[in-house]
């Protein structure tokens, strides 16, 4: 049956996802600049794992492989997951995480468009719960102690777990700035003292703040090309700023400035790339606002009062659960039923 409309805008899922992948590149570039090319290794590993798993699952589910494998969604999941875990983590960590994300949290729920949870975040959650130790060894940026690893050393550590002689793991890795902040606060230090530590830069973690800025740059590109709507990132960052600002104003010695929260951890990539996953976020405008605000509050609570180093993943997953409910209760009024005089 051939029926109207007979024309359509030249857009496709594959193109949309490709643009999102492109928008990640500034952040990745800063990543490589500050932390070395190890991240490229994990991105590649994740990509290959994602594509293989995707193809396998499509085959098992008796679905056509070519249109789905070329839709770039598996790649996006892979990249988001790779960017969320330490680049120096052993190779099998990213492989297991990505395979789980694609096979279980995407395909077992019905594949593209049917998964209730963000697959990358499911992958992250599984890894941090199952393998907490390797998930905390983050590379120290080049400029902090000058003892950085070259590419060969990073490569050999990822695949064999061997470090060049004379170097210990603690010497080349560290906890994330958010984690460090939390630990030091527990030790009784004040925020001002902690911020003087060499791993911190002007806004947040040294190096990582620039990576976050890179993601924000890519995010703005997505915003202006209307790939994503403003509701999610703006409300998310705004609420995070407001909550963090409130605590900071009340007790600046114990609660760090809101900008620190913006540029630490996965806040930026979360705001522009993770929350905005269309499949797992609400469809109504009001719903998006509720979703983003909820995610921001949860992120802050988990970061400041919870036990995990970052809160974006769990905040996202917790809000993902609420999406169907949010959608039902935020249905907009339709044409002609909005009441008079609007």
């Amino acid at each position: 049956m051939f029926s109207s409309p007979f024309i359509s805008q030249p857009s496709s899922v594959s193109q949309i996802m490709l643009r999102v992948l492109l928008a990640l590149i500034p952040g990745i570039a800063f990543y490589v600049w500050y932390f070395g090319p190890a991240i490229l290794v994990s991105l590649t590993l994740a990509s290959i794992t994602a594509l293989v798993t995707e193809a396998l699952m499509l085959k098992l589910r008796n679905r056509p492989i070519k249109p789905f494998i070329s839709d770039n969604t598996a790649l996006l999941t892979a990249w988001l997951l790779a960017l969320s875990i330490p680049p120096l983590a052993p190779w099998w960590l990213i492989v297991v995480g990505t395979a789980f994300a694609i096979a279980v949290s995407k395909h077992l729920y019905g594949g593209l468009g049917s998964n209730p949870f963000n697959p990358a975040m499911i992958g992250y959650a599984v890894l941090i719960i199952s393998f907490p130790a390797p998930m905390t060894h983050w590379i120290t940026p080049h400029s902090v102690d000058g003892m950085s690893l070259n590419f060969a050393a990073q490569w050999s550590y990822i695949f064999s777990g061997m470090l060049p002689s004379g170097l210990t793991l603690d010497a080349v890795t560290m906890a994330t700035p958010l984690d460090t902040l939390k630990t030091q606060l527990h030790l009784g230090q004040s925020v001002a003292d902690i911020r003087d530590m060499p791993i911190f830069g002007r806004l947040a973690g040294h190096g990582s703040e620039m990576v976050a800025a890179g993601f924000a740059l890519g995010g703005l590109y997505l915003l202006f090309t209307r790939i994503i709507s403003w509701h999610l990132p703006v409300v998310y960052l705004g609420t995070l700023f407001a909550v963090a600002g409130l605590f900071h104003v009340l007790d600046p010695a114990h609660y760090v400035a809101p900008l620190f929260h913006w540029f630490s951890g996965a806040a930026m990539i979360g705001a522009f790339f993770i929350l905005t996953d269309p499949v797992t976020s609400p469809t109504t405008q009001k719903g998006k606002i509720i979703f983003a605000a909820g995610a921001a509050v949860l992120t802050y609570l988990i970061r400041v009062f919870g036990g995990f180093p970052d809160g974006v993943a769990f905040a996202t997953l917790l809000m993902n659960i609420c999406v169907p409910l949010i959608d039902i209760y935020t249905q907009p009024k339709v044409f002609g039923k909005k009441g008079a005089g609007k």
Binding site: M1, N62, R63, P64, I65, K66, P67
Partner: peptide
């Protein structure tokens, strides 16, 4: 009107 028939779901590439 009939329920639209979507081809690629049935086809196995």
């Amino acid at each position: 009107w009939q329920h639209p028939v979507i081809i690629p779901i049935q086809a196995v590439a």
